[in-house]
């Protein structure tokens, strides 16, 4: 194992999160992510993977713990009143794409892309439109700029959603099972786009059930179950020769046959 001395990009410390008094989902999660890393999170259904990403995006309150980004804590619940503090300025450097299409249906593709840059950063329409068009071309969507989301295939919608997030120049991208709702023949086109981003060393955290994709994109794999990190290591280890019994059971089940 090589030691890297660079400061972590993301540092999650003893993160606890429950929905109501009875559903404890995250039970003391610790994750460190270095700059340029592509972390794939795998684990059984209901294990809290989506919850983890939603917390990192500031979409959920937490019970306790903290998350820092670039050395700066931006989500924490340490004060006496247990209120979740979220630094919205830091949060703006994180982008997220969801499993279910979340494009704005009443806006065309290009309007979806420029809404946030114009309204959040005060960028001019002309400049945002130019950047958006270039991004769409890059993702093979140049001809769809004026289409409405309902006129796109699932794969196209997800590519637009990725482009929309990239318009804000995120320093970290979160992908939550972005191909799970797609027809099998549309999965590759979306994964290609994410691989393209990986080639430009965009830091990302990816939740996926697609082990082929996990293997190809991950620089590190985390196996999460029961609200804690069970195993954390390079893809060859976690996917190929897991050390932990529970990881092995899970990998066996999703791959069907041992490698």
């Amino acid at each position: 194992m090589t030691m890297s001395f660079s400061a972590p990009l993301v540092k999650i410390q003893s993160l606890h999160k429950s929905y109501g008094p009875h559903i404890q989902v995250l039970k003391g999660l610790d994750i460190e992510m270095k700059p340029g890393e592509r972390v794939v999170v795998i684990g059984p259904s209901g294990g809290g993977k989506s919850t983890l990403l939603r917390v990192m995006m500031g979409l959920e309150k937490i019970d306790s713990g903290s998350i820092s980004f670039g050395g700066k804590p931006y989500i924490s619940s340490e004060s006496a009143d247990r209120k979740t503090e979220i630094d919205t300025e830091v949060r703006r450097s994180i982008g997220m794409v969801f499993q279910h299409y979340t494009l704005f249906p009443h806006l065309s593709v290009i309007q979806n892309l420029i809404l946030a840059p114009c309204k959040v950063r005060g960028e001019s329409r002309a400049s945002a439109t130019k950047r958006a068009q270039a991004l769409l071309e890059r993702f093979g969507l140049g001809a769809k700029a004026n289409a409405y989301p309902a006129q796109l295939s699932g794969g196209q919608k997800q590519r637009v959603a990725i482009a929309r997030a990239l318009m804000l120049d995120p320093k970290l991208m979160l992908f939550d099972e972005v191909t799970s709702a797609l027809d099998p023949e549309l999965v590759a086109e979306v994964e290609q786009v994410i691989l393209q981003l990986a080639a430009q060393s965009m830091p990302m955290m990816i939740v996926t059930h697609d082990m082929w994709f996990a293997k190809n994109i991950a620089s590190r794999v985390i196996f999460c179950a029961g609200g804690v990190v069970v195993e954390d290591g390079p893809p060859e280890q976690v996917l190929g020769a897991p050390k932990e019994e529970r990881t092995r059971d899970f990998i066996d089940r999703v791959f069907h046959i041992r490698h």
């Binding site: 995006m57 703006r92 704005f104 009443h106 809404l115 959040v120 997030a165 804000l168």
Partner: peptide, 28 residues
């Protein structure tokens, strides 16, 4: 609720969420 999630993930201020996302969809 996923429309609101998208708004938050894009960092849209509350005012923009209402006038540019919720209101037009509600009216349509």
């Amino acid at each position: 609720p996923e429309q609101l999630d998208a708004c938050v993930a894009l960092g849209l201020p509350r005012r923009v969420q209402v006038t540019n996302v919720i209101l037009p969809q509600a009216v349509l």
